[in-house]
């Protein structure tokens, strides 16, 4: 295995007195796809939000693509530009059209010429099969279309790593598939992905490794087949029996 692109060592985090992350260790190498699952409140979202420092960890080290994340990190924006993120609530900018949503950051953060940014955006929108909606506003699209736009927006920054924070949890059942399809395509393209999700079908199809978290700890970490075939801890077994 090559040098990991994300290195998480002994990370601890507290919200007030409540410890959300306890001694998390995780290495992710390039092109690896990792699915994180677990009951709500187990710290999955917090963990991946720490990776692009939307949350700050209080103890331990997180190294993303050679840059350590800490209070002294000067170029946190550069790190974030290399780590795309897709949220549960889409978080598209409602005052901008889909195309502008996609070109905003490339133009102003990466200083890309407008024309180039638009071409790139259209290419990414085509990838998620939503190019015909480019000039609409987020409020005019369905949830599935919005989430696919959000994926395209993140991809427009040409990130090395993509984080997904329960991307299908806020969607109607019939729209989940179109979003998952887009994610599967992305995975096949060789993107490094960390996905927090309860879609076990997706995990089986795409993931190299599955991590099960509970109460702020990584309870189990195994290769996908192994994880589903014979989970080791009782907690994992219980969880899987409930969710499958």
């Amino acid at each position: 295995m090559s040098e990991p692109i994300i290195k998480i060592e002994n990370v601890n985090k507290w919200f007030g007195d409540f410890q959300v992350l306890k001694d998390i260790n995780l290495d992710v190498s390039a092109k690896q796809k990792i699915v994180v699952c677990g009951p709500s409140g187990s710290g999955k979202s917090t963990l991946i939000r720490c990776i692009n420092r939307l949350e700050e960890h209080q103890k331990g080290t997180i190294i993303v693509d050679g840059t350590e994340l800490s209070e002294n990190t000067k170029n946190i924006e550069q790190v974030r530009a290399e780590v795309g993120m897709v949220f549960q609530q889409f978080n598209l900018f409602p005052h901008l059209s889909i195309l502008d949503n996609c070109t905003l950051a490339p133009i102003w953060v990466k200083k890309m010429p407008k024309k180039e940014a638009q071409e790139l955006a259209m290419k990414q929108l085509e990838q998620v099969q939503i190019a015909d909606q480019a000039n609409k506003f987020p409020g005019q699209l369905s949830g599935g279309q919005q989430q696919r736009s959000a994926i395209a927006r993140a991809l427009c920054m040409q990130p090395k790593i993509m984080l997904f924070d329960e991307p299908t949890s806020a969607l109607d059942p019939e729209m989940i598939k179109e979003v998952l399809d887009a994610m599967v395509n992305l995975a096949k393209g060789g993107m490094t992905m960390i996905v927090v999700t309860h879609e076990m079908g997706f995990a089986k199809e795409v993931a190299d490794e599955v991590i099960f978290m509970d109460e702020g700890m990584i309870v189990e970490k195994a290769e996908t087949k192994e994880f589903f075939a014979n989970p080791k801890s009782d907690r994992t077994k219980l969880f899987l029996s409930q969710i499958l």
């Binding site: 974030r80 530009a81 978080n91 950051a105 990466k110 927006r153």
Partner: peptide
């Protein structure tokens, strides 16, 4: 909503860009 701040930050925007554009 906080998501708007999160989204802008996750795209690599700094304080001023985030506020001016989003």
């Amino acid at each position: 909503p906080r998501g708007q701040y999160d989204a802008a930050k996750s795209l690599g925007m700094g304080y001023w860009k985030m506020h001016i554009f989003v």
